Amino acid sequence: MPPAPLRLVFAGTPDFAVPCLRACLASGAEVVAAYTQPDRPAGRGRRLAPSPVKQAALAAGIAVEQPETLRDEAARARLAAYAPDLIVVVAYGLILPKSVLAIPRLGCWNVHASLLPRWRGAAPIQRAILAGDAETGVDLMQMEAGLDTGPVLLEKRTAIAADDTGGTLHDRLAALGADVLAEGLSAVLRGETLAAAPQPAEGVTYAHKLDKAEAKLDWSDSAAALARKVRAFDPWPVAEAEIHGERVRLWSAEAVVETTSAAPGTLVATHRDAIDVATGDGLLRIRELQRDGGRRVAVRDWLNARRDVSR
């Protein structure tokens, strides 16, 4: 008699989690339900919108659950009724209490977008760019009660390129996460047990949730740090700064190693396709920006609209 299929519950919410859901569906496991955050207001009309995971799950014909919390007995009983062998969690957004972690016989796995124990927490992708890390990756982790403290089952690494943004690195890590999850599921479906490597005590850092206030650039910072902020905050919350008396959003910029006696924040040079602004150390060369209420444009278009800026 053939063995019963692996019963799997998936828990995730944003775009980042969708490739992992698809990896579960393609693995041969039986995905019996998808848990995701309740519909939230979105867009200019603030209408309730389903999460990307909910949309993908419904398209695949999977039962969708959207509890406000997993801490009440009724929600836990409903989850237990699915009789999962494994729960896979990817950017779900709700805490799984110990009573939930204990439900599946294989426990709960988490796909996390960093090389643990570095950047535990909510915003590991952007924090890695902000810190100037040369490398990051995704870890498949066995979940426990602590925040991203569980042992690592599998890991995949990727270099952080000089032009990587929060958006490009997000997409690459989402794909890597699906790869590492597929590898783990394949091993379990073959009857293998993955080796769990405890995280080292050294090197723990926390990736605190992004705050929109962080997007406001301080020109007294170094050009290198400001350029990293521009990249990390693309596509959200987008770096903001005042240039020549105007508040703008910055989409593309690079650090230039050049000394200047100008005060930080001073527009010191214009080029055909860029402007240079003095910082606390070096110049920030800006190539794309967005005026208040406008669209993202090349600097040459901004210069054409700002005839008061000397060439």
Rank of each mutant, 00 (worst) to 15 (best):
V100K: 09
D221N: 10
L6W: 11
P67R: 12
P52T: 15
G177T: 08
D133S: 14
L25P: 03
R307N: 06
G177L: 00
D218V: 08
G107F: 05
L185H: 15
E214L: 08
L106F: 06
A134M: 07
E135Q: 09
I275F: 05
L169D: 02
I243V: 12
V152D: 06
I87K: 12
S186V: 04
R120Y: 10
A224P: 00
A77Q: 15
R40G: 09
E68M: 12
A201E: 15
L94M: 12
W109C: 00
V256M: 01
A223V: 12
L185C: 13
E254P: 04
L169A: 02
P198L: 02
V248L: 01
V309C: 13
P5K: 05
E68T: 13
A33C: 07
D179W: 11
L303W: 06
V299M: 03
D218Q: 11
D221A: 06
V277D: 01
T168Q: 02
K156Q: 07
V138C: 10
E214W: 14
L140R: 15
R190E: 04
A134Y: 04
A91D: 10
S220E: 07
A102P: 01
A63Y: 06
P237S: 03
T193V: 14
P235Q: 14
L267H: 00
W251P: 02
A253G: 01
R249T: 10
I62C: 12
L25Y: 13
R105D: 14
A159Y: 04
V138L: 14
V64H: 11
T149I: 10
D218T: 06
A49V: 02
P151R: 02
S310E: 11
R7Y: 14
A74I: 05
K212C: 00
T260K: 06
G93P: 13
D85G: 04
A195K: 02
Y92C: 01
L153S: 05
R76A: 05
A227I: 00
R157F: 05
N304C: 11
S252I: 03
A213W: 10
R231C: 00
E214P: 04
L210S: 02
R296N: 14
Y35S: 03
I243P: 01
L185W: 12
G12N: 00
P50R: 08
I87R: 05
A278G: 09
S252N: 05
L94C: 15
L267G: 01
T260F: 01
D72C: 12
D85C: 06
M143N: 04
G177Y: 04
T266W: 00
L6R: 11
L94Q: 11
G61M: 12
A60K: 03
L176M: 04
D148V: 06
A42I: 04
P67Y: 10
S99K: 13
I275S: 07
A197K: 11
R311A: 14
